[in-house]
Amino acid sequence: MNIKIINAKVKHIEECIEILQNSDMGRTYFTNREKAEVMLTNGILKTGVSVAIDENEKILGFIYYMPNGVFGSYPYLHIIAVKEEYRNLGIGKQMMKYFEENASDHISTKCFLTVDDFNPKAKKLYEGLGYQCVGILPDFYKKGTTCYIMMKEITRS
């Protein structure tokens, strides 16, 4: 699917909240609409949120990353979510590529993300993209949920 990824604007918040709340992560951590709105607003104002749009500028998903989110030095993917009816079309992979290419201005870096045990499809996707589990955090975000820290070394030419 042909998409374009652009910096999100405040006008995109409502659709991003809907996409987030209709994801496994959203149903677990962002059932409170206000919490989702505050988080996304902060991300957009700090230019850490981008949206994937089609040729009609319809929002298909979003990605929220922090260029120096890990140890103040390495890019961290905070959230990636694709609208339910557009999943399994390669949009998530395209957004991951965007993250890897744009999160750092260094030739070589390490990119990090976390994924929870209730989301094995996402973990498998990340592994397929070259991410490796480098740590396990039981009860990190939520009691009874294990969080996997994943890392990929990126070298650009």
Rank of each mutant, 00 (worst) to 15 (best):
23 S>R: 03
129 L>W: 08
145 T>F: 10
4 K>I: 07
141 Y>F: 13
111 C>G: 15
96 M>C: 01
92 G>D: 11
52 A>N: 05
118 F>C: 01
139 D>R: 03
135 G>Y: 07
56 N>G: 05
111 C>T: 15
130 G>V: 13
110 K>R: 11
46 K>M: 14
118 F>T: 06
154 I>F: 07
63 I>T: 02
73 S>T: 15
98 Y>A: 11
45 L>G: 12
119 N>T: 12
77 L>T: 08
75 P>E: 03
75 P>N: 05
142 K>C: 05
56 N>L: 08
95 M>W: 00
55 E>T: 07
58 K>S: 13
145 T>P: 00
144 G>N: 05
28 T>S: 02
105 D>V: 06
128 G>A: 12
15 E>Y: 00
34 E>S: 11
131 Y>V: 03
18 E>T: 02
24 D>V: 05
57 E>H: 07
37 E>D: 12
7 N>G: 03
112 F>Y: 15
33 R>T: 11
64 Y>S: 07
99 F>S: 07
119 N>P: 10
117 D>E: 07
66 M>G: 02
68 N>F: 11
12 H>T: 00
104 S>R: 01
126 Y>E: 14
114 T>G: 05
80 I>M: 04
141 Y>S: 06
33 R>N: 12
58 K>N: 15
94 Q>L: 14
100 E>A: 10
6 I>W: 02
11 K>D: 02
81 A>D: 00
102 N>T: 09
80 I>L: 08
120 P>I: 13
93 K>D: 05
136 I>L: 13
132 Q>S: 14
71 F>D: 12
119 N>F: 10
155 T>H: 06
114 T>P: 07
28 T>D: 00
138 P>L: 02
81 A>E: 02
18 E>W: 06
58 K>D: 09
41 T>I: 10
75 P>S: 01
4 K>E: 08
134 V>W: 08
57 E>V: 08
126 Y>K: 12
111 C>H: 15
29 Y>R: 01
29 Y>G: 02
148 Y>W: 04
149 I>F: 07
35 K>D: 10
53 I>W: 05
128 G>S: 13
141 Y>V: 03
98 Y>I: 08
109 T>N: 13
80 I>H: 01
92 G>I: 05
47 T>A: 10
107 I>H: 08
119 N>L: 04
72 G>I: 08
105 D>I: 08
18 E>V: 05
59 I>N: 03
127 E>F: 09
70 V>S: 04
52 A>S: 14
50 S>H: 15
89 L>T: 06
107 I>M: 12
